[in-house]
Simulated scan of single mutants.
Amino acid sequence: MTNEKFSGVVTIFVVLLVGMMAGACTSVHAQQTLLPEGQTLITLSVTERMNVEQDLVIASLRIEAEDSNASVVQNRINSVMARGLEQAREANEVSQSTGYYNVYQYDRQPQGGRAETLWRGSQSLTLEAKDAQALLALAGELQAMGFVMNQLSYQLSTERADEVRDSLMESAIARATEKAERATRALGKSRFDIAVLDVDTSSDYSAPVMMRSMADTGSREMAPPNAEPGETEVTLNVRIQAVAQ
């Protein structure tokens, strides 16, 4: 690149940079002059927290089968799942849904023997209920049919979380308003008006898995699994902008 061309590029860059700086300064100046003289913008946020007992229990079970014939594997899964769903539908307090269904072929190599080609498959069944005793009793019945427990956990239901957030919102706004009032007095102002109120309810209320009982498919007298609820922390953030004058 010649010196003339390089000089031209530098000149263009400098002009662009000066223009950007001028635009930024204009933007800052415009923001500073938004409020009339004697008024001050106050920005603050508060967070409210509450530990809430989990009220929704979820169990995930699966039925497994293995055979040298794919049809035998699938028939076993289909028939046991049909009986399991029929049993689950009798529990009105418990909702049920089927999950992943997978059948695949693999080679098993016995020690010192020839490789054997087998088919293996499984399908999952998920149960949800606020009536823990009804769900746990049903889970025990399914385990007796041959279902294996994948996981058993408690979590906070969406309905309960929304209810708690509503109560937290009221207290959070009250706290934010109190802080804005104190800031107004500290600035030597006599009054304030809230211009912006932002409520942030984004939170993850999933619970860790709590497993108390695993399936024993060799026993036909199956005791129901056990589970106890824990607590979930519900949080709510409120951000306000107030104009003190």
Rank of each mutant, 00 (worst) to 15 (best):
T2F: 02
T2P: 04
E4M: 10
E4W: 09
G8D: 05
V9D: 04
L16C: 12
L17V: 11
G19T: 15
G19Y: 08
M20Q: 09
M21Y: 09
Q31W: 11
Q32R: 13
L35N: 07
G38C: 02
G38Q: 01
I42A: 01
S45N: 14
V46D: 00
T47F: 03
M50E: 14
V52I: 12
E53G: 07
Q54E: 11
L56M: 12
L56E: 04
V57M: 04
V57H: 03
S60A: 12
S60Q: 13
L61S: 02
I63E: 02
E64T: 10
S68F: 08
V72I: 14
M81S: 06
A82H: 08
A82Y: 05
L85C: 07
Q87S: 15
Q87N: 12
A88P: 01
A88M: 04
A91P: 00
A91Y: 13
V94S: 01
S95C: 02
Q96M: 11
S97V: 11
S97W: 02
N102A: 09
V103C: 01
V103H: 01
R108P: 00
P110T: 07
Q111L: 11
G113R: 11
S124Y: 02
L125S: 02
L125N: 01
T126K: 06
K130T: 15
L136D: 01
A137H: 12
A137R: 13
L138I: 09
A139E: 03
A144R: 11
A144P: 03
G146D: 08
G146A: 11
F147G: 00
M149D: 03
E159L: 13
V164E: 03
V164F: 10
D166I: 06
L168C: 04
A172H: 00
A172K: 01
R175L: 09
R175F: 01
A183W: 00
A183N: 04
K189G: 04
L197S: 09
T201E: 12
T201V: 11
T201C: 07
S202E: 14
S203W: 08
D204T: 02
S206L: 08
A207P: 09
D216H: 10
E221M: 12
N226T: 15
G230H: 06
G230I: 01
E231R: 12
E233M: 07
T235K: 11
T235A: 10
R239N: 05
